[in-house]
Design a protein around this nucleic acid. Structure first.
Length: 346
DNA sequence: ATGCATGAGGG
DNA sequence: CCTCATGCATA
């Protein structure tokens, strides 16, 4: 009977949506650009001979894997997994599919184009790839069920069926830092070190409270902070591990900080309010790109992080993957690369 | 903890 | 189509 879930973040941020709401953006943007390896150049350069480069990259990748083990299976494994509508322990599986957000910053620029090339007859023979990936994790600290020690108010509050906007964006909390900008300085510095230490402290205090990452995400809605809904376990996890973009980290920090204080305060008064949700919706599918294909993609990415649509199609065909899968893979790879570059720089 | 996916927003 | 912030599904 009650199958509505609780997490649903919506509410599109009324506030935070300024042209560039935070000074951070500015600086981060600048940083981003600085990190970029001359995009325009790349385009030109590769336009000329990317084909051969790709072939070589592929060959290299192939060679590399030869030494690996064998993998008798097929590359692309897109599994389906029907719905397991069982309500998990504590996963508040969100109700409707997805919700998205207005994004906190959204500032970009970009002007690149595609040279559009032809295909190449590369020899993608990933013979026996074999992946010996070890998924380490050590102590699974994040189990699902946990004591629900949240704040006092309950959680669920809404149940809209439409996936629609959510927004967890917060915005501006300008940290008037001491950046010495004189007047009008809208820039503030997020200071990576600060964030890092905060993330660490956050995690520890969270654990001390006996709350899971998922719990934190769901509990955020209780804070009723304007423009802030709940967040997923993934996001909380990424925050703690600093695997979010710098801007994202900066934006989330004040929110999580607020939650932490509220949670600790609530604990003091011994209040517990377990949230139990149940709900089953549609399952999303997650394509699994096999190791050999992944290696090929990485090889392509190395020479051309932003392949044209045509090239993507060609690669997709070669690897026997859906074009969209390949496109998304490149998008995600770019995001990842960006984060890595940032952390490497700081 | 992460991989692949969705979608808003901007061009 | 891209970038970004996020999330479901998974390993």
């Amino acid at each position: 009977m009650m199958s509505m879930n609780s997490k649903q973040p919506f509410s599109v941020h009324p506030i935070l949506h300024e042209p560039k709401y935070t000074p951070l953006h500015t600086s981060s943007e600048a940083i981003r650009r600085a990190c970029l390896p001359t995009p325009s150049l790349q385009g030109n350069i590769f336009a000329g001979f990317d084909e051969s480069l790709l072939q070589r990259a592929e060959a290299l990748a192939a060679v590399d894997i030869v030494a690996q083990k064998s993998h008798p299976f097929k590359p692309d494994a897109t599994y389906h997994t029907m719905t397991t509508m069982t309500s998990m322990t504590c996963t508040p599986t969100s109700s409707s599919g997805h919700l998205h957000h207005p994004s906190v910053l959204t500032s970009h620029h970009h002007s690149h184009h595609q040279p559009s090339q032809g295909l190449e007859g590369d020899l993608l023979d990933h013979l026996t790839p074999g992946l010996a990936l070890g998924a380490m994790a050590g102590p699974d600290v994040c189990s699902a069920a946990t004591h629900g020690a949240h704040a006092h108010m309950s959680a669920i509050n809404h149940m809209s069926h439409h996936h629609h906007a959510q927004s967890v964006n917060m915005h501006a909390h300008n940290l008037a830092s001491h950046a010495g900008l004189g007047s009008g300085g809208v820039e503030a510095e997020p200071d990576p070190r600060e964030l890092e230490s905060f993330a660490e402290r956050f995690k520890q205090r969270r654990i001390k409270l006996g709350v899971t990452q998922a719990d934190v995400g769901a509990a955020l809605a209780n804070l009723k902070i304007p423009g802030v809904g709940c967040l997923s376990q993934s996001t909380i996890c990424r925050f703690e591990s600093l695997t979010l973009s710098h801007n994202n980290m900066v934006a989330l920090k004040p929110i999580l900080e607020a939650w932490l204080e509220e949670a600790e305060r609530a604990q003091r008064e011994k209040m517990a309010k377990p949230e139990i949700f149940s709900g089953a919706d549609k399952k999303r599918k997650r394509t699994s790109i096999a190791a050999p294909e992944k290696r090929s993609l990485e090889a392509y990415f190395a020479v051309q992080p932003r392949p044209s649509s045509e090239k993507i199609a060609a690669i997709a065909e070669k690897l026997d993957l859906k074009k969209n899968v390949v496109r998304v893979w490149f998008c995600n790879q770019r995001q990842k690369q960006k984060r890595m570059k940032f952390s490497a720089t700081h």
